[in-house]
Nucleic acid binder design. Structure first.
Length: 590
RNA sequence: CGGGGCGUAGCGCAGCCUGGUAGCGCAUCUGCUUUGGGAGCAGAGGGCCGGGGGUUCGAAUCCCUCCGCCCCGACCA
């Protein structure tokens, strides 16, 4: 039986000044964790119990689709050199040398190691598919650990890897993970959305992130409750409301207009008495292509969008196949566009004929496609054009979606004529599933024989869950829904204890005996119970019970004389009196 | 890495400007009273004032330097 009087639960009355986000404050105040350094935390009793609850759920679901391994976290450089990531991981990887001077690193992910096992051991298509997973500590030298447990340098990850014969097989492994992840997060009591994610530099074909909406999050996601659409803002698209084009003026051809001092879009729109949606804006960049050898090529890029839209640099990078963007400085604007910021436009530019070709790459956002009689800069100080029609008056290197979707725009999959406004909000990523393809299997030379006796490369997927992030996301979610001041309660499945029995006065032998008896009964019924038998005033124990996040509290006090105890459901904010003999059944069906 | 803030008792803070050898609240320990929402009274313990160097008769306080932590940005398979 767990007796609070003999446990180490160092609750704090005041929040350490370093903590800002709700989950960090909670974890410190409730005595779940203590900080060692930036992004390094020790888990104490309550924190570790919660993590154990979470990993038990993860194991339970993962064991249905895969097999648990445990790989080393200390890894030789050689594998990473073979995959090429010894260099591309850069400073995010913790590196060290052993006594012989050999290079080692601390694992930040385990594609290489799992693939190494696969290439040594898998020989035949008869052995596939395989799904191998582990729950293990990962190390990442983050440039800026922050927000308590949300971004740390050492954390637990459930990572799994699938090996299949072909894309259909990969689709099945991916779907199995999708279903398992949904089951895991649901059992952990989280409200989450699965979003389309940017596949990024990994080059995979499909990728999905599992996100929990919270103000403490670092990602922005767009979702529609109507259609179920959900995507990371890096990838989200939207259906735009139609815009009425302006009527042409004069002969309908581009007309140069003197616009002194009208550089900002709002000023230009006011000057012409138009909406920013009738304007073309330009953002000019120098893109750097990621050269693995370090020989990065600089490429000038002019991006044109509707005046009221924002460039999505992740999308733009994807279109360009580049690794890095920075905006042009004044000299570069003069060199490539011939005009100053605020007066840039697409007319008369000498553009690259193809992506990667020499000259200025002109990227036009799809929202400008089919538009007519727009206003844009003239690449000349204090001048704009009107009557500008894309396609007729200027051309481009590439037409692509490079803008950010905005809150309130309709989801892209909304049927025509129906409303499906997007909600855009901050979110924290708790899981990620990813179709890797052949990259690692090829780089490391994993091959199996197919039914025809030919060597083929297995296709891989990789899938991750941040264990601590399940806890922090659940806390953030509970904090968002909790009335302030009274503490918060965790979902029963991941709370360190399901029930706390608060004996209001342990010097009353009858109350203490009743509390102990009830705790024994609950324990026998398989309920995870904590008996608060401390010799403290009732108020102190109530406050502590509220603070540590246990969702159900049983008050053993005055009403025992009438054969009753008070059961407080902290998540529901309700309390009821229950007869002593019915407590177990009451809490079981709760 | 750029910008900002902060390191004084377990936690929260004052003292620093204007140098004179450290203080408050909570927590902890002891005693008495109290006992259903962080009790009251009385007493006690606890500090290389982040480290190093300098100025000075004297440094928590002024100067230099290093380290650490937090926030914004950059970054984040």
């Amino acid at each position: 039986m767990h007796r609070w009087s003999s446990l180490f639960v160092p609750t704090l009355r005041e929040v350490p000044s370093d903590a800002e986000v709700a989950s960090h404050k909670f974890l410190l105040r409730a005595g779940y964790v203590r900080q060692m350094g930036a992004g390094l935390y020790s888990f104490l009793l309550l924190g570790q119990r919660s993590l154990n609850k979470i990993t038990a759920i993860v194991r339970d679901e993962m064991d249905r689709i895969g097999q648990e391994f445990l790989l080393p976290a200390l890894l030789p450089a050689e594998l990473w050199q073979q995959s090429g990531r010894w260099t591309t991981m850069g400073e995010n990887m913790f590196r060290l040398k052993d006594r012989k001077g050999a290079d080692l690193c601390l694992g930040m992910t385990h594609e290489e190691v799992m693939t190494d096992i696969a290439r040594r051991e898998l020989r035949s298509y008869k052995q596939l598919p395989q799904i191998w997973y582990q729950i293990q500590t990962k190390f990442r030298d983050e440039p800026r650990p922050k927000s308590g447990l949300l971004r740390v340098r050492q954390f637990l990850m459930k990572d799994s890897y699938s090996f299949d014969m072909d894309e259909d097989g990969l689709d099945r492994s991916y779907a199995l993970h999708d279903a398992a992840y949904r089951a895991i997060f649901t059992r952990c009591g989280l409200e989450f959305v699965a979003v389309e994610a940017d596949s990024g530099a990994m080059g995979g074909s499909q990728s999905q992130e599992f996100m929990v909406y919270t103000e403490a999050g670092e990602d922005l996601i767009a979702s529609s409750a109507v259609t179920g659409y959900a995507a990371n803002l890096e990838k989200a698209t939207s259906r735009l409301a139609p815009v009425e084009d302006l009527a042409p003026t004069g002969d309908g051809l581009p007309e140069l207009v003197h616009t002194p001092g009208k550089a900002a879009i709002a000023d230009v729109a006011a000057f012409f008495a138009i909406s920013p949606a009738q304007d073309i804006k330009c953002v000019a960049y120098i893109a750097h292509t990621e050269g693995a050898s370090g020989t990065a090529g600089a490429q000038p890029v002019a991006a044109f969008l509707r005046g009221d839209h924002m460039v999505n640099e992740t999308k733009l990078l994807g279109v360009l196949g580049a690794g890095e963007l920075r905006t042009m400085n004044g000299d570069e604007l003069e060199q490539w566009l011939g005009g100053p910021a605020g007066y840039l436009g697409p007319l008369g530019l000498e553009r690259a004929q193809a992506l990667g070709g020499p000259g200025l790459t002109v990227v036009v956002d799809r929202a400008l496609e089919g538009r007519r009689n727009l206003v844009c800069g003239a690449n000349r100080l204090d001048y704009h054009y009107r009557n500008v029609t894309p396609g007729r008056d200027f051309r481009w290197t590439v037409l692509a979606d490079i803008r950010n979707a905005r809150e309130g725009e309709d989801a892209p999959d909304a049927p025509p004529g129906t409303a499906a406004p997007l909600r855009i909000g901050k979110a924290v990523e708790i899981g990620h599933i990813f179709k890797l393809g052949y990259r690692y299997a090829e780089a490391l030379g994993a091959r199996v024989l197919d039914a025809n006796g030919r060597e083929v490369t297995p296709i891989m997927g990789s899938y991750g869950i941040g264990i601590e992030r399940i806890l922090t996301a659940a806390i953030e979610q509970a904090a968002a829904g909790a009335p302030d001041g009274n503490g918060l309660a965790l979902p029963r499945a991941i709370a360190p204890f399901e029930v706390v029995i608060t004996v209001t006065n342990v010097r009353d032998a009858e109350l203490l005996a009743t509390g102990e008896q009830l705790a024994r009964e609950l324990e026998a019924a398989g309920i995870d119970v904590l008996l608060d038998d401390r010799d403290e005033r009732a108020g102190v124990k109530f406050k502590d019970a509220d603070l540590v996040g246990i969702p159900l509290r049983v008050n053993v006090g005055k009403k025992v004389a009438e054969g009753q105890v008070e059961v407080v459901d902290r998540r529901a904010g309700k309390s009821v009196d229950v007869a002593l003999g019915e407590l177990v059944t009451h809490l079981q069906k709760h």
